[in-house]
Design a protein around this nucleic acid. Sequence first.
DNA 1: ATGCTGTATTTTGCATACAAGTTTGAAAAG
DNA 2: CTTTTCAAACTTGTATGCAAAATACAGCAT
Lengths: 240, 240
Amino acid sequence: MSARPAETDQPAKEPRRKGRLHTSTVDALHRMIVTGDLEPGQKLREQELCERLGVSRTPLREALRTLAAQGLVQLTQNRGAEVAPLTLADITALFDVVGSLEALAARLACKAMTDEAIAEIGVLHYRMMLHHVRDELPDYFALNQQIHRAIIEGAQNPVLLGVWEALAARVERAKYLPNLQPNRWKAAMHEHDAMLAALVARDGNELGRLMEAHFHNGLAAILAANGAEAPPETAVDGSA
Amino acid sequence: MSARPAETDQPAKEPRRKGRLHTSTVDALHRMIVTGDLEPGQKLREQELCERLGVSRTPLREALRTLAAQGLVQLTQNRGAEVAPLTLADITALFDVVGSLEALAARLACKAMTDEAIAEIGVLHYRMMLHHVRDELPDYFALNQQIHRAIIEGAQNPVLLGVWEALAARVERAKYLPNLQPNRWKAAMHEHDAMLAALVARDGNELGRLMEAHFHNGLAAILAANGAEAPPETAVDGSA
DNA sequence: ATGCTGTATTTTGCATACAAGTTTGAAAAG
DNA sequence: CTTTTCAAACTTGTATGCAAAATACAGCAT
């Protein structure tokens, strides 16, 4: 379903197919924000984005409202939009919530998933491991994301899926901040080993515990990496 | 259609203050959907809503996008918007997620809240109890909501607050479905008693457990009330 | 020199106009 | 009588124009 064609496009003013402008505008902005192409706190002037994306202000504004509801953009009355800041405090808060949701998903998935679906996750797991030993980071990331998504979908709870998808975008933003150190990478793989074992054993509580810990470790890595080397504007916690 | 309540505001075409049209449109639609004034599954034709709310299509469409991102409205390409259906399966899923989030909030709040804030919740609690013995349901509901919100805010996690607010709207929708039986009401009050005790004791795990159970009991009441007496169109689980 | 004020420019918010897609219904063919 | 086709009406999607708010800046007063 979510398999999108590679499509690196950042379309300038190519005359798109006539429908689906709103959707593709949302996606384009979504990517730009997640990848950091648009930086946290950056002011988003409508006219400028319109030219960049090749759409008029109406669909652009609708896209901004959608993204604002997802927490990627911040709107202020009569003062326009800016990319939502991403402070370390925000990231901490975010990981607490997502960790909790994944733990819930784990418990539900262990009850609801079919043996076949679990086996498919096993396949993904070993493919991911392959990318790990080959040092192919982007592919590793993609598989990692797919595994987490599969577990969430395995919970068979549409509300959970919807909330998770919205938050996953922000998690992705956080992942683009630091360079993932090899140490953390290796540790993450081991954590995934344990997670798969728990899933196969259908031990929901254990899997939940593991996933929550997995998330907290990822958070710690991000905090460590950025607390030391981040430029001041990036993400210092906003006491003001 | 359904009888609308008093209807003091709901401005027809009064020339509003020039700003804030978008926000108030979102709020108005929000209320209409939550209260059931707009029924689940109902098709939302833009022109009709424009006349009813006294705005043009542009801000209305922006509002619909916002509500869609919050899960109150469902959009389909070139086929417009409809009020998101609210099946019993949806409600079950929703309560699982919100219960889990409130449990998280409980753990965090027990650590983060000041004594003063906890005391304020105590005040709200006893005011709510007063409305209970006086049989004042709407006031009870309002206080109940305030207490839950105060605990979420006490967790001091802006992400959690944002997610919870979006989901709370859907929970409200569910509450408007059945007539709350007096039995459930009484039980809910007792559960709140225990919750307050755990909060004062700052026992986060216990409070989390209690709040999750509180939610599940509420869900069971709704399911029971509707499984038996709901009209077929309302909320039968949507296999389709 | 500094602070304030009024005006010009920019930018957002809303409304309307136009284009493209979808639905409906009636007429014609089987 | 049923089914198919096609066009008219309606609905949504997008672009543009206009008004109000905010910002920037120059000129003035202190």
